[in-house]
């Protein structure tokens, strides 16, 4: 299991569009993926879960991966946060 703390950097926060980019990317990996914020823990592959976090810009959260490709998933997903969910 690997973990990393990240910050939401895009201005609008984790709204519908960034959420769908996030879960789409996460779903490509076999590892389980959870996001923990303010004591809530949601499935990072569930768009409804991610949206209901209502994470605004500046919000901090912990990404948790568990599975065969956890290292790579962590790398790719934290890059997404870093690039403000802009598709490359």
């Amino acid at each position: 299991m690997v973990k990393k703390k990240v910050t939401v950097k895009n201005e609008a926060g984790l709204h519908a569009r960034p959420s769908s980019v996030l879960v789409k990317t996460a779903s490509k990996f076999d590892s389980d993926f959870y996001i923990s914020m303010y004591g809530y823990k949601v499935n990072g592959k569930s768009i409804l879960g991610v949206m209901t976090l209502a994470a605004e810009s500046g919000a901090e959260m912990e990404l948790i991966f568990d599975g065969p490709d956890e290292e790579e998933a962590l790398k790719i997903i934290s890059e997404l946060f870093e690039n403000k969910f802009q598709p490359n």
Partner: peptide
């Protein structure tokens, strides 16, 4: 993008 979010909702594993 908005349609994408609707499609992702249908795919939502928890739902």
């Amino acid at each position: 993008e908005i349609l994408d979010a609707q499609i992702e909702t249908l795919k939502d594993p928890e739902l």
